[in-house]
């Protein structure tokens, strides 16, 4: 059986909130290493990959591999009943029909318990190769969110060009064009506000802003975001969580 307790319900709430508009139904794959999820969006343009390692739970017990097929809108309806600071315990049998969620508020002596029905989901699983990216950019997640939001008002697409001088996000639309250039800098008072660029070769790729804006819904999970780029391969957008990560892969656009 599965029994996994999170110190704060908000971790799962934020993950589900961030991905529910990209993915409707998906399997949460549970094993002794933790809980993982991989799912493509309906258009097969983006891939979501999430890991919550067993060390992020206390206690964590999972005797055998269990796939929890869940409708994310249903899960979100239940998770909205949990306060951010509640303890959240997930429980399921070895061959479950439902997932049990228990929310505990220590301050109010309140216990809430919900069961949601599970579904059989036959999902295509993709193997993601280990990639040495040509450019890795670490920047404040709020900064990336702002850039995507501002440029999406002008255009459907953004080019991301990274070279030794910095990273330039540029777009062109019917009303005009715009760009934001970030140069590497270190904030000595708050490391999370720094921008770092690691580069082995210059890259220039174009992506759909609609998807990037969607990925930025994960910004509350982490103060920083990592963008990994290589020419002609999908962009990796990564938000680190305490004992895991939420990753988005986005296929590039080509031509006009």
């Amino acid at each position: 059986m599965l029994e996994a307790r999170l110190e704060q319900a908000q971790i799962l709430k934020k993950v589900v909130e961030a991905i529910k508009d990209l993915v409707q139904d998906c399997n949460f794959d549970c094993n002794d290493a933790g809980i993982q999820l991989q799912a493509m969006d309906n258009s097969h343009v983006a891939l979501v990959s999430m890991k919550l390692g067993s060390e992020g739970f206390s206690p964590y017990r999972c005797d055998r591999n269990i796939a929890l097929g869940i409708n994310l809108n249903s899960l979100m309806k239940v998770l909205r009943a949990a306060a951010n600071e509640d303890l959240l315990t997930l429980k399921a049998e070895d061959q479950p029909d439902s997932l049990n969620l228990l929310f505990e508020s220590s301050s109010q002596d309140r216990l809430s318990e919900y069961d949601i029905k599970l579904m059989d989901i036959d999902q295509e699983h993709l193997g993601i190769p280990d990639t040495e990216y040509a450019a890795t950019i670490t920047l404040p997640s709020a900064e990336f969110q702002r850039i995507c939001r501002d440029l999406s008002a002008l255009s459907e697409s953004v080019s991301i060009e990274a070279n030794k001088d910095g990273v330039k996000f540029a777009c062109s639309g019917d009303i005009g064009n715009g760009s934001v250039t970030l140069r590497p800098h270190t904030n000595v008072e708050d490391e999370d506000k720094s921008t770092k660029i690691e580069l082995t070769e210059p890259v220039n790729l174009t992506f759909s802003l609609k998807y990037l804006v969607n990925f930025c819904k994960a910004s509350s999970l982490s103060a920083t975001v990592r963008l990994c780029l290589s020419n002609e391969v999908p962009l990796l957008v990564e938000y680190q969580m305490g004992a895991g990560y939420l990753r988005f892969y986005l296929a590039p656009k080509i031509g006009d």
Binding site: L126, T206, P234, A251
Partner: peptide, 14 residues
């Protein structure tokens, strides 16, 4: 969308 590649073109189906 025009010119949009699919993710499955890059990652192997398991």
């Amino acid at each position: 969308e025009q010119g949009q590649l699919e993710i499955v073109q890059f990652f192997k189906s398991l």
